[in-house]
Amino acid sequence: FQDGASPESIVQRYSTVSLSDVYSAIGYYLRHQEVVEAYLNYREKLADSVHQRLLGIQPDLTVVRSRLLAQKNLEG
């Protein structure tokens, strides 16, 4: 919706929702835009925080991937 998609095209993309559900969600968003935006911003910050924590815990997966590919190339 924010990117210009019509309710009909949203239903085509997400077949598990009905057209009336999409209109209801859009109506809720338009009536409570500030609250929804604040919630989405909070969730985005939380996701960034989790991502940063995981980066500190997990090894650099590109190194692991490179090693696995090198080993695969040596074997076959």
Score class of each variant (00 low, 15 high):
F1W: 09
F1G: 09
Q2M: 12
D3F: 06
G4Q: 02
G4M: 03
A5I: 00
A5L: 01
S6Q: 09
S6M: 07
P7H: 07
E8G: 10
S9I: 08
I10S: 11
V11S: 10
Q12P: 01
Y14L: 07
Y14N: 12
Y14G: 02
Y14Q: 07
Y14P: 03
S15G: 09
T16H: 12
S18I: 03
L19N: 11
S20I: 12
S20G: 08
D21R: 06
V22S: 06
V22D: 03
V22W: 02
V22A: 00
Y23W: 11
Y23S: 13
Y23V: 06
Y23N: 15
S24Q: 15
S24W: 14
A25V: 08
I26V: 06
G27I: 00
G27K: 07
Y28A: 08
Y29E: 00
Y29M: 00
L30F: 11
R31M: 06
R31N: 11
Q33G: 05
Q33N: 09
V36K: 06
V36N: 03
V36R: 03
V36A: 09
E37C: 04
E37D: 14
E37G: 02
E37A: 14
E37W: 04
L40T: 11
N41K: 10
N41C: 00
Y42G: 04
R43D: 00
R43M: 13
R43N: 05
R43H: 05
E44Y: 07
K45P: 04
K45H: 10
A47R: 05
A47H: 00
D48Q: 14
H51N: 13
H51E: 09
R53T: 10
L54T: 00
L55N: 12
L55S: 08
Q58V: 13
Q58S: 14
D60W: 03
D60C: 04
L61V: 10
L61T: 09
L61K: 02
T62Q: 15
T62V: 09
V64D: 12
R65A: 10
R67V: 01
R67W: 01
L68D: 05
L69S: 01
L69F: 02
L69T: 00
A70E: 15
Q71K: 12
K72A: 01
K72G: 01
L74Q: 14
L74P: 02
L74G: 02
L74C: 03
